[in-house]
Amino acid sequence: MGKLTREQEVYKRWANARKPKPPLVRNTIAAFLVGGLICTIGQIILNFFLSLGMNLKEAGGPTAAVMIFLGALLTGLGVYDRIGKFAGAGSVVPITGFANSIVAPALEFKREGYVMGVGARMFNIAGPVLVYGMATAWLVGLFYWLVHK
């Protein structure tokens, strides 16, 4: 991309100043409420696993798995995108949103076949999360090892 000319800069600033802004207060409240609700459901599931005699660490994985199942199922049923339109980050940031980001492209590219469609596209959006999450944890581990060992 070349640098913008002066004329382009002026127009861009003028147009950006005039464009309607997202309803910030409404969006943030919706994200807070729905995000909070999803986490409360997570807590119910977590408490259920704890009641089976698991400790907190053991119960984390199964809780995540159940939440992923719920997010994936609601995506398959065509409901999760509607929740997302209302809740924004409230349904994107919880792990159910991670499941949605896996199932949505996979479903959509089913018609391009199971290998190059579903298989290749599944991690279109979730892939970067795994790549950078794992790389960051690895780096944090490296520092930890250098400092402590």
Binding site: A31, G36, P94, S101
Partner: peptide, 24 residues
Amino acid sequence: GGTICAIGQLLMDLTPLTPAHVLV
């Protein structure tokens, strides 16, 4: 949980970050 999601919403609405960027 609500607070973390609300921070995500502010990032999406106030910065040019897309949902994928916010997740990363």
